[in-house]
Write a protein that binds this DNA or RNA. Structure first.
Lengths: 110, 110
DNA sequence: GATCTATACGTAGAGCATCTACATATAGTG
DNA sequence: CACTATATGTAGATGCTCTACGTATAGATC
């Protein structure tokens, strides 16, 4: 899968993963891999900046903790984040319907 | 619909419209509107550069003509273009399946 | 105790598709 | 003569994502 394809849809994917409960960055990347059947393998250089962006937008809140001597930043969906996720889902539904409609061979408009 | 969402998928949409037969830029934009039920309204500054890019990539071939005193550049799908369209459709199928899978609430993995 | 791998976070610089806004030209209408 | 629809195109800016790199701890292996 071309990595560029997620452009514009990454936020929704991250929010969706976080809906299950708080996770730290590394775990989010793994969850994305798992949920997509291994077809979505996003580099840290893509995900970490996105997380900071989402936190800055107040869709996530992050807290530091130390687990096994390692620093972790755990992200939790905020109320705004949940709201945004719903919006993203609606947007995706509409968008995918539009692309389906245009992409589908127009087999006779009769 | 956020305009940025088509990012990375525009090529496929244009190729799909051209599958019905040759069209010029203005008509392509109108066809995109029609096929999407008016939800896809792309500005000329997006479509014209894309057409030139696709032509440069040999997925389209363009020819000038004059209709009613106005210059038109009519684009036709090349053999490579048809091939690329098939690839874009496959990519889209996979991509939308992945996004669906990640976005869908994980209602119990039980 | 040195090295290697997995875990975990992050930044720097670049690319490139798309956006907004503008520029140009013809035909027809009022 | 001005305005709208048709028709094509460029200029500059934006901003997400990419590639590549940098840092650090824990545990296993040698």
């Amino acid at each position: 899968m071309k990595p560029d394809a997620v452009r514009g849809h990454l936020d929704g994917l991250i929010l969706a993963v976080l809906e299950d409960g708080p996770r730290h960055g590394y775990a989010i990347i793994e969850a994305l891999q798992t949920r997509s059947g291994g077809r979505l393998d996003l580099p840290t250089g893509t995900v970490y900046p996105a997380l900071r962006r989402l936190e800055r937008a107040a869709l996530l809140s992050g807290t530091w903790s130390t687990v096994g001597g390692r620093e972790r930043r755990t992200y939790t969906l905020t109320r705004s984040g949940r709201h945004a996720l719903a919006g993203q889902r609606a947007d995706w539904t509409e968008f995918s319907a539009v692309v389906d409609a245009v992409l589908r061979p127009s087999a006779g408009t009769t």
